[in-house]
Design a protein around this nucleic acid. Structure first.
Length: 890
RNA sequence: GCGAGAGUGGUGAAAUUGGUAGACACGCUAGAUUUAGGAUCUAGUGCCGCAAGGCGUGGGGGUUCGAGUCCCCCCUCUCGUACCA
């Protein structure tokens, strides 16, 4: 007996690859073509890998193995994004140092990844929590500081009392923390900021050259949020005379200036204190109080009804000298533009709503809609009206021209100027946590001061208490010995920075460290950097579409500006793998009385109903829905995101144990296109597992053990007669080579696997299986199922035992090339249509396949066709060489 | 609301430039083998129909000898985003 046992052959080859450093990248010869294929490195959590990790990792591994066999120097590294909140929270709960938890988790992840047979160069592993790594993270921070791109500011931040930390906007979801779901409130705090806004335009422009999914580029564009318009200054007047103040607003619609009938300041706007009239003071301060207690989110989502208060002051519209009232309202955000707007209710939905509510005048200045019914917001086809003063008129102009003309006039009069505004804001770069990179900064006489480079790395002090202080001071404030230091330059007493960097910091540049992980003179060896960069392919989840990828691009551009890297952009090509959902679930709903409720007639969440999980055999398809078998009760048929609470999580370890790593890899690739969202199916895993067993049986005689007697060499050996491959076998092989090669190049791994299956199904039927055909097949199988391929390669006797047990791997065998002439068939089959309907087929010899008259004649004589031709007169004959014939009848 | 993407058998999915829709796989049906199998092999399997044939790629129109593929309108779903002036 000699069955396919992945549990035996897989560990054997994993050990072989590790011991022989089979996949160590040798980049001493920089004249070779290179391929840098990168995975988004994981956060090593305590729960281990989920099935989403091996999806992208298998895809990149296939490409890495394929490129190696094509003679490329391949850089295919992995590492750990190991700073972060979970380890710290675990430390708070149990007192275990995050270092300890982190190391355990890394060991677990490394073991899991190695058990999947990924061909990483384990000598280049990086760990963001390793001082030898974050020394350079800190170094980059110093460079940012030198460039004036890092500064301290007191900003209202998202303070989460439960987590005892500040969260970035993107870590707050629906007013709650992304991690844990705890309430979040606004509170001003001293923070480090990075001036990413200085790079907004370049981050936007350089997207054009990137080979990324359009959706991701679009998300980044939206996030950067560039708007063109004008800044306009409105002088102010109060009821009791003149106040030397003015309001500057940003507008994208300077063409509607004549329609501005009031102004709105953000409640926090500093001008409010100075210009509010006494009569309005009370109402204004009450409103500001309410607004201050709302988060940004409360002010938007939950509060569609607009509110505001008149502050008693008036501004003068510079285009027509009309006095218009000034209000405060929380639909205007202090953080965007100038924190103040000119309100044009005729042509802005928000202003229209507000004007209606508070009975403010609505003036039409762009023709095309009915401003008494709704705001007319079209900015392309509208024509300006009611927009002229003694000096300038934009009447009868279309909006785009009107914008230009009025902006020019404003500039000439010194009333305003062309302006560009971005939604992108500076990056809040500090966290009140322990488990992060310390800032290389001290405070001397209350002023921040960077530490010299030769003091790096600044390491974390050892502590047992990781709890933040009640006031929100970071845990590091408790490490007195570490905290109090002296300024190395002046010897003055100094206090260390107690904030730490956010998790994004380490992941902003890790792709550079892989290039020269032991380099001592900088973050990356310049010579190697020039060779390897940019990353040729970066694969990861779409959840990093904006933040990680934008932050990393920002740092990269700074490093480019100071000459550390040679490319403008880090990741030339990006692919997002689609999420893997849980198995398809059928759910019916029962009400309190126990009767079924149709899933399509439920209103609300259905929380009050009992959920009944159904088996596939309990349901049937009815129209485009599923119903309970034998009834009309519509049931839900859906796949859900894997989650512990739903209990539909698939653990890769279990799959490997039952079916092996090759089956897991193959299944994840066979499910469908890489980028697509796909539901898991355990039966699908069984399917590819059966395929692997068939491959095994093509080579191995399971009953007798050893090679299957059908496997033959072309040279006589050991008594079995030599056999050369026949024409059909070669055609099959070369078709498969062509298909698999092209599909790997196009990242169509699912159809590549299907081609390998077709070959195997054919090969099973062969009584004689020549080695010349089997060997190339193993080579093209090997990127997908490397363990099985290596094992069979060895069994074929191509791997010499040699002295000292030294083995040879197929990992660097040349990739087979297909030969065009072997793909040709003896005959060609035409589909024959009559009036566009397929009525039959005709087979003709290949050498006459493009002979139109010959083929048409053969087609006409086909009985299945001829009986249809009798029904009418042929008025037209369509002949598409090698494909189709169509007779058009009248 | 806005932006992006997607709708093909019972299921996951295939299908160069418009050229035999459903490859491959799961599931299912029947049979073989086996003490047994969630093993293996053979045959079948889009839908309706005994058949001839008809109908089929979310729905409706159009272009074409010919449309899953191109054009117009509509519907549904997924993801992202949210008063950005």
């Amino acid at each position: 007996m000699n069955e396919y046992k992945p549990s035996e052959i897989e560990p054997k080859w994993q050990q072989y690859w590790l011991e022989n450093k089979t996949f160590r990248t040798d980049d001493t010869d920089l004249s070779q073509p290179k391929f840098y294929v990168l995975d988004m490195f994981p956060y090593p959590s305590s729960s281990g890998l989920h099935v989403g990790h091996p999806e992208g990792y298998t895809a990149t591994d296939i490409l890495a193995r394929y490129k190696r066999m094509n003679g490329f120097n391949v850089l295919h590294p992995i590492g750990w994004d190991a700073f972060g909140l979970p380890a710290e929270q675990y430390a708070i709960k149990t007192g275990t140092h995050p270092r300890v938890t982190t190391n355990e988790n890394i060991d677990g992840f490394r073991r899991q990844l190695q058990a999947l047979g990924f061909s990483y160069d384990w000598d280049r592993e990086v760990d963001t929590t390793d001082p030898a790594y974050f020394r350079w993270t800190q170094w980059i921070f110093l460079k940012l500081y030198e460039q004036g791109l890092a500064y301290e500011a007191s900003v209202p931040v998202n303070w989460c009392p439960e987590l005892g930390t500040v969260l970035a906007n993107e870590e707050v979801i629906d007013g709650k923390s992304e991690v844990g779901g705890f309430p979040v409130e606004r509170r001003p705090m001293r923070q480090w900021m990075l001036k990413i806004t200085a790079y907004a335009e370049r981050l936007l422009q350089d997207l054009e050259e990137l080979d990324w999914p359009e959706s991701i580029k679009e998300m980044q564009r939206n996030w950067i949020g560039k708007s063109e318009g004008a800044n306009v200054v409105f002088p102010m007047k109060t009821a009791d005379g003149d106040v030397q103040e003015s309001i500057e607003v940003f507008t994208t619609r300077p063409d509607t200036l004549f329609g501005a009938t009031y102004m709105v300041l953000a409640p926090e706007h500093p001008l409010v204190d100075r210009v509010t009239t006494d009569a309005q003071k009370e109402a204004v301060s009450a409103y500001r109080q309410t607004a201050a207690n709302k988060t940004d989110l409360d002010r938007t989502d939950l509060n569609k009804d607009k509110t505001g208060v008149f502050i008693g002051a008036f501004a003068v519209n510079p285009v027509n000298n009309e006095e218009i009232p000034v209000w405060i309202a929380d639909y205007v955000m202090m953080s965007y533009g100038t924190g103040a707007i000119m309100a044009v209710p005729g042509h802005d939905e928000r202003d229209w709503e507000f004007a209606r509510k508070y009975d403010l005048p609505i003036v039409e200045v762009v023709k095309g809609g009915d401003v008494t019914k709704e705001a007319y917001v079209d900015s392309q086809d509208g024509i300006c009206v009611n927009s002229a003063n003694d000096e300038v008129s934009i009447n009868d102009l279309p909006v785009p021209e009107a914008k230009k003309k009025i902006t020019k006039w404003l500039e000439e009069k010194g009333l305003g100027k062309y302006a560009v505004t971005y939604k992108l804001r500076d990056w809040l770069f500090s966290r009140q946590r322990y488990w992060g990179e310390p800032f290389p900064v001290i405070h001397v006489d209350g002023q921040p001061k960077p530490l010299p480079e030769d003091h790096l790395p600044i390491t974390l002090p050892d502590m047992d208490d990781f709890q933040p202080t009640k006031t929100g001071e970071p845990p590091l404030a408790k490490a007195k010995d570490w905290l109090e230091t002296t300024d190395p330059e002046t010897g003055k007493p100094a206090i260390r920075e107690t904030n730490t960097m956010p998790q994004w910091a380490g992941s902003c540049w890790y792709y550079l460290r892989y290039i020269s992980p032991d380099y001592e003179k900088g973050p990356v060896d310049p010579e190697k950097e020039k060779y390897w960069m940019p990353v040729d392919l970066y694969v990861g989840g779409a959840e990093h579409a904006v933040l990680h990828l934008l932050y990393a691009r920002f740092w990269h551009k700074v490093l480019f500006d100071i000459g550390v890297v040679s490319t403008k952009e880090p990741f030339q090509r990006l692919v997002n793998q689609g999420m893997i959902l849980g198995e398809l679930e059928f759910t019916a709903y029962k009400d309190a009385a126990g009767s079924y409720v149709p899933a399509d007639s439920m209103n609300g969440t259905g929380d009050e109903l009992e959920r009944v999980k159904l088996e596939e055999k309990d349901v049937e398809k009815r129209g485009d829905r599923f119903v309970l078998k034998g009834t009309d009760t519509v049931v839900d048929a859906r796949s859900f995101k894997m989650s512990k609470s739903r209990g539909n999580v698939i653990n890769p370890d279990d799959v490997v144990e039952q079916y092996g790593a090759d089956a897991l890899r193959l299944y994840e690739m066979f499910m469908g296109p890489l980028e697509q969202v796909k539901p898991w199916s355990m039966q699908g895993v069984e399917g590819v597992y059966r395929f692997l067993k068939r491959v095994w049986r093509v080579f191995i005689d399971e009953e007798a053990g050893g090679l299957n007697p059908a496997v033959r060499r072309s040279v006589n050996s050991g008594g079995t007669p030599a056999v050369a491959p026949d024409r059909a076998q070669l055609k099959m092989l070369h078709e498969t080579i062509k298909k698999v090669t092209e599909d790997i190049e196009g990242h169509r791994f699912n159809t590549a696997i299907s081609a390998l299956m077709i070959f195997t199904n054919e090969a099973m039927k062969w009584d004689v299986r020549p080695v010349e055909v089997l060997k190339p097949f193993l080579l093209i199988l090997s990127p997908f199922a490397p363990h099985l391929a290596e094992e069979l390669w060895e069994q074929l006797g191509e791997i010499e035992g040699g002295k000292g047990g030294a083995k040879k791997t197929l990992a660097y065998e040349p990739w087979p090339e297909y030969q065009e002439e072997l793909l040709q068939a003896d005959t060609k089959v035409y589909a024959v249509q009559v009036n566009g309907k397929v009525r039959g087929q005709v087979e003709v010899p290949s050498d006459r396949a493009t002979d139109k008259e010959f083929v048409l004649d053969a087609a006409r004589n086909e009985t299945a066709v001829s009986k249809h031709l009798e029904k009418g007169q042929v008025v037209k004959e369509i002949f598409v060489p090698n494909r189709v014939i169509n007779f058009v009848l009248k």
